[in-house]
Amino acid sequence: MRAITAEGLVKVYRTRSSEVRALDGVDLEVEQGTVVGLLGPNGAGKTTAVRILATLLRPDAGRATVAGFDVVRQAQEVRSVIGLSGQYAAVDENLTGRENLWMFGRLYQLPSGESTRRAGELLEQFDLTDAGDRVVKTYSGGMRRRLDLASALIGRPRLLFLDEPTTGLDPRSRLGMWDVIRSLVREGVTLLLTTQYLEEADELADSIAVIDHGRIIARGTADELKSQVGGERIEVVVHDRADLPRAEEVLARDGSGQWTLDEHTRKLTVPATGGTAKLVEIVRDLDLAGVVIDDISLRRPTLDDVFLTLTGHGAEDDARETAGPGAAA
């Protein structure tokens, strides 16, 4: 049985003056025990898709099942097998961490004793034992996010939705969160994860669906997507504007695709294969051509590169409002 199926999901947000098609026919399938990353820029429809699958929002058209239950007609059954953790840490900041977990456990219909036990386990697992009896108001952003994730796990859900679990976290907290998510996956949880970061989808997901303007525009493993995008990127910042034509010539010869130029920062970017060897080659050729450079670097393709290749526009070019909590109220 598939853990998640969605067919032709449509969601339109209407206001007095405008109409936004947040989802415009989304199909999605998630196999049991796998991790699927829903990758897209702000406003692409990621959050809307998760809210529909987690029964918070009704689709205008299409249907979806979670663990075999219809998300509209069998919403309560769906709720008893899922856990949801969003980009807004939805925990009560005037309760302690332990009280939050106990309350969510009780509302997940666990008996009181079991709720207490589970709360203790999760505080331990998420490294919050010391802070467990402190009011959440005193927690750092990373701690709140961990508590939010722990809250989603209180009822041992078979299926977990994580909506941008690391957005807004500092790099160290982000790595910590990744470790936590990886260990959950090892325990066999099916996970649907939304993210704006290709790197994150790459680290965590077995397969990726790229979403833009409410439509899935590509799917595959991270490697498949990256080979579609064409490997790594080499970025060169030229010291003198007058040297740009000669630098472009070098990159056209050494690179493995079309270069792009950011006029403002004098930064040239070109897809490249061959890693550091290629980097050295380009440095040497630029030197031979008499081009003085301020900076040169090798980087992995980003979401922006994926979007440039797949859609012809950057990921951030037309960012729209993301549907936050209560946006549909």
Partner: peptide
């Protein structure tokens, strides 16, 4: 609603 707690409640059985 603002703090997202209502969403949490609504996602629970």
């Amino acid at each position: 609603i603002h703090k997202g707690l209502l969403d949490r409640f609504r996602s629970l059985p």
